[in-house]
Design a protein around this nucleic acid. Structure first.
Lengths: 215, 215, 215, 215
DNA sequence: GATGAATGAGTGTTCATTCAT
DNA sequence: CATGAATGAACACTCATTCAT
């Protein structure tokens, strides 16, 4: 029946709206107070749902986190794509990626830390598998983007010809995340002891990383 | 009221022995289950002390963590010093540092993550200040070691002459930690998808990082 | 994690019913064992609620006490009003007040002691302010009742004309409470050594106090 | 043997010195922080004894309290005797008693509250019996002092001839304690709302009580 | 006699989750 | 579909007291 399908879709859409509303709200609270200091009660009150209703749309607090991680991963992918497509020169594309990742790290400090962590540790229950798989898929797709970027770099002789693409994806990723994380964590220290602005430090870092793969 | 009937009495031992026993035990549990999932009760049972006795030797759970962090930092420094002094050639010294850090990361995965995090966030209370300061001091001393290593590299013309020493310390540190963390977290993925052993992947990573600073 | 399997479900009742049930139960325990020797655990078990449920209806143990104090104060006011209105003659009204206070002291020995204590010491937190204010208000209203009673006594020339009303309220109150408290505490002693019944002793005391203000 | 006796006495004296030192120290802490907020640990540290040593001189925390109550009772008796003997006129003797009791209430607020309470409730264990009995004995002796004072008052026709001595002791005691307790607890209230100094209020109260028994 | 060391038994409060309606 | 109501399981920390030396 046509009607049935339409109704079902509407309901489904409505559900996704609720999920989004709840998750957005929870996300803000998580950033403000840290995940552990945000109770389901607080989320419910803030999002103006009954606490029990939260459990209609999410199986658990964990799933909210998982969902938010997914959302943030989508943003990450967007930022990185933007960083790449908005620039012509290859080095500038690289910096675009760096800035994209930094933007992500600033906006989603909570999930940034998870990007490097083993996915399987956090989401084991069957009902999250969907989120989990989707997160994984986006991760793969980001890998591909970086992969293509490296290949292109090799082709146009900006990057060393002996680079092994796959491991290099991971290396660049690791180096970048490591430098950005350290920069964010030691902000004060960098400013005071190193007498550099955060941006200066990061630019120097991006440059160093670029050196590791350029011809 | 009659309380505190003693069931088994330990042979008199120095307080430091007890601290170490408790901390070691707690450390193992922390690695297995994550710090937040280990209660003082569990530590007490596992270490075969009464919970109250834990509080004779440590002021709080936090202090146990602080103590363990300090212990691990001392190990880290040892490993890095070893890595540097046991090698002659400059590149080998660099690899020595890498292996030292990797060894640390394997042995102390929990504290490895803290190495990059802002110290001040965790230990604010006055009674830990001593530990905290000591941790900070060791951190500084590791920085110095890396700093001297970079300077030497520049002098003997292995490293680029335009390197800024201080930021480079942080960059190398960040890149290394990032690559190692990612390697450890994505172990399985690397083996399966990349068809490399962990060591091969890491060696390739160390090499890449070395490239970023060498002449 | 699965939690909170419900074993028995109560028929839906108004929150105020639950508050009353919990408070009544707690009150009995408080009287029996002293407030400090009654744990929330015990209250929960005795009242046949889960401990967590206690916290649904009361914010804290302190609030239970505050609530009970309020209830008892309401009773006190009732008893005193009764004592005054059920009698015609002025002296009999006075005895009515005495008996009202004594009845209160017998029924609520725990709160009887608080009647004389500085209110502000116990209930500081904002959430109890309502109870606190209400308790204070009832206290004031009792003062007024006694005040009017004294004024009337002066007018009809039963009480001395030189009485200062306000201080006399407090004096009568203090004397009465003191005598009743002592009588209750030294019950046995009075019976054995003084060879009087409690009532005889108290009547004699009420009389003595009446003498202090009568013309 | 003479020696033995001397040594024994010395030791015994020494012990009583320790008891006094510990109790004095504990007493100060009790007044400052409230009995429940003072741990045996704190007493030990403050009095510069080992915690275990406290238990050499006192069976329990309770016994320290009992001992302090005893000390305070001795003071109370002293104050009252002073108040009576330092005055000639009967009314002034009465005021002397009042001031003595007030002085006690100010100096020992903690024990003042116990003066009215049933002794048997607090000290049941056999080892306190001695203290308990002594406290009781002093209480009796204070009763006697007041008793004699009343008798004298009747004889010299200051007090009503129909007074029953024994109950009157208790009545005066109860009224006085009640008025003083209330005055101390509602200090602020009296100053602000009644616009009287504490002394004025108390003097008025003493007078009122005196009226209750005078001819 | 003095004490270092050890501990059993709490304590109030929080929170994610469930289920009947 | 939404929710009010209920709860089991934790959890860090405290303290009076005991005993071997």
């Amino acid at each position: 029946m046509r009607r049935g399908v339409i109704i079902a879709r509407r309901i489904k859409e409505a559900a996704s709206v609720h999920r989004m509303r709840i998750a957005t709200c929870a996300g803000k609270l998580f950033e403000q107070k840290g995940i552990d200091n945000v109770s389901m009660d607080l989320i419910a009150v803030t999002a103006k749902y009954s606490k029990a209703t939260l459990y209609v749309y999410f199986d658990s607090k964990e799933e909210i986190i998982s969902y938010l991680t997914l959302l943030s991963m989508q943003k990450l992918k967007d930022y990185i794509l933007e960083g790449i497509t908005q620039n012509e020169m290859h080095k500038e594309k690289f910096l675009g990626i760096c800035h994209g990742l930094y933007r992500y790290a600033s906006e989603f400090p909570l999930y940034f830390k998870m990007v490097l962590s083993p996915i399987n540790i956090d989401f084991k229950n069957s009902r999250f598998e969907e989120n989990e798989r989707e997160i994984f898929r986006i991760g793969e797709s980001i890998n591909n983007i970086i992969g293509r970027f490296i290949l292109e770099g090799i082709e146009i002789k900006v990057f060393r010809p002996d680079l092994k693409v796959f491991p290099t994806i991971f290396n660049i990723w690791g180096m970048l995340v490591g430098v950005i994380e350290l920069a964010l964590n030691k902000k004060e220290y960098i400013k005071k002891e190193m007498k550099m602005s955060l941006d200066e430090f990061l630019d120097y870092g991006y440059d160093t990383i670029f050196n590791s793969v350029k011809i």
